[in-house]
Amino acid sequence: MSLKTGYGTETETSETVIYLENLCKSFGENHVLRNFNLRLNKGENIVILGRSGSGKSVLIKCIIGLIKPDSGIIRVLQQDMSGIGLRELDQIRSRVGFLFQSNALYDSMTVRENLEFPLRRHRREMSEEEVARLVEEALTNVGLPHTINMMPSELSGGMRKRIALARTLILKPEIILYDEPTTGLDPITAGEISDLMIELGKKYHTSSIIISHDMHCVKKVAEKIVMLIEGKCYQEGTYEQLKASENEAVRKFFES
């Protein structure tokens, strides 16, 4: 892969699962995204790297339909997200997992209820036995089957992240959007979470967009890195390519 500066309009192929073209989003005078382009292919893991407040979280929230972009094209799994109906949006969301930065576990529910929630909402026809089996499988995948009846407040930061990951994966999504998955964790736990992301990604053949500042995590999981600077795709390439970049704004990330 060659190092690319800037990002032109990429062509969409049958392998493309997420396609963004000229995406713009502003909050008042703050222009967060300016003609942002991105293409995520099947089985690919892309890391979006950028400074805090550069619009990375806004970008993935636009993809999942939590924030409406001002203009531009978003196509997820070949479905155009502009003007999409609620039913179609729910169908897309059942195929796209989202791991929130704050984990977003429901405080008033047990671990079991947290995991059952997306299943009961997206797979209403599923039997009780099947729901129980999938919950058990998801917890085993993240190595925490004993926490099934615990409340989120009883779990450590790393355990909460694992449970959140289990909840994201329980619907067996084709794409996963990770919003800073290792933020706030100690280096050992962060490394375990990165390994888990790679392992589960391989097991379920998912494609993913990962937002992270943790360069150890980035190095482990990224097949391609996209630099988001000034709302645009500033540069893209592999970890090694960007580390060797002559551009100071890019290199600074890898020096820290």
Binding site: K61, R93, F100, Q101, N103, A104, Y106, H122
Partner: peptide, 20 residues
């Protein structure tokens, strides 16, 4: 307080992406 903390910890967003 309950809805407020759900809002700031993204639980409301999580609910939305869970088809609710």
């Amino acid at each position: 307080a309950e809805l407020g903390s759900m809002k700031v910890t993204e639980q409301i967003d999580a609910m939305e992406v869970s088809g609710t």
